[in-house]
Design a protein around this nucleic acid. Structure first.
Lengths: 188, 188
DNA sequence: CAACGTATGTTGTTTATGCGACAACTGTAT
DNA sequence: ATACAGTTGTCGCATAAACAACATACGTTG
């Protein structure tokens, strides 16, 4: 099982991180990432600015953590982190990525900037790790197939999420699925 | 102006008290006061049980504080704490007490018990103090008129809040107003 | 250029909270 | 009666968070 982390740590830490996360995500809905200051975050979270630095190096580290958390939560919700490869799970994964990017685009004020590419890096890493985990029992190397599939999934999801008028997600995924599955069928 | 307290104190204290208050009020909606343990409160508030005792002597102190806070909030909302006596303000005060008791009866699971009389004491004290404040410039003693008016207001509001089928509040207050105002008109 | 306002990280100290343990009391069941 | 389980209020100690102050950097404005 992939490391989804709900470790037992000091409740104060949990609470503070939660407050920071929530504050940050709310702020992302109001202004774009660049214009958010650490002070903004801590004000809304009702914590001291110095405390922020006890948990995150800077707001970039927070963004990374935040994206990871949000995405992992969606993965967990569908228990995709405790399964193995098959077409059905792959379909769900594509669905999750599409939904995730779509939500990010509708919820966050984000003109083009580093935000986009940041999300790409973070999400791709998670998708790649998940695929690698699914294929963990393969006798042959899974690196290239997983890489290709990851790029394909992200590319399709990004495409989907940028559509002015998004088509029905289910139909979109139906079309997308075989294009991704083709390189993974050998592992089914 | 009466002491409505939003003092500057440690943000941790504010947060903790807020969590306790909220947890407590939510619990009141689920079970009756007697069956709520301190552990219940701190569990839901996500704070340590010992921390509770750093803020309140026991759950009775908390109840007192909670009722006071809730009621004062309603008073503040209508700026009744920064005005002087006139019929209009009196009308609003009666309205507030009626609404407050009514909300308490619909929101809280409360069969007959000490809860009821506890609320009475607390609310009456606030009403009395407020009336005394309104009449602060009177040359003659306001103690008896304020006492009578306080009892009348609470009695009417309690009556209203216990009705199975409550009549329209505005109409009720219209009827009630003159009965209370009669002893205060000399101060208008 | 200089003066200014604002945001960033960092530090040392103080304070609030978490934690585990304890004795005392309650009600309940055996 | 005795044992048991649960709640209460309190304690000392460990640790996270608040706070104020500081140096640094950056952009703006005069």
């Amino acid at each position: 099982m992939l490391p989804s982390l709900d470790e037992k740590l000091d409740p104060r830490v949990k609470r503070t991180r939660g407050l920071i996360l929530q504050s940050f995500e709310n702020l992302l809905a109001e202004k774009n990432f660049e214009s958010i200051s650490v002070q903004d975050i801590t004000d809304k979270a009702q914590i001291n600015r110095a405390t922020f630095y006890a948990h995150f190096q800077d707001k970039y580290t927070l963004l990374d953590y935040s994206i990871n958390q949000m995405f992992m939560q969606e993965i967990d919700k569908r228990t995709l982190n405790i399964c193995t490869y098959n077409t059905d799970n792959l379909r769900n994964l594509i669905l999750v990525v599409c939904e995730f990017l779509a939500r990010l685009h509708t919820d966050c004020v984000q003109p083009h900037n580093q935000f986009e590419s940041f999300v790409e890096t973070t999400v791709k890493k998670q998708v790649f790790d998940l695929l690698s985990y699914w294929l963990r029992n393969s006798k042959i190397s899974t690196e290239l197939p997983a890489t290709v599939a990851t790029s394909a999934i992200y590319g399709l999801a990004s495409h989907y999420s940028h559509r002015k008028k998004r088509p029905a997600l289910d139909r979109f995924v139906d079309e997308a699925l075989p294009l991704v599955a083709i390189n993974l069928e050998q592992f089914a």
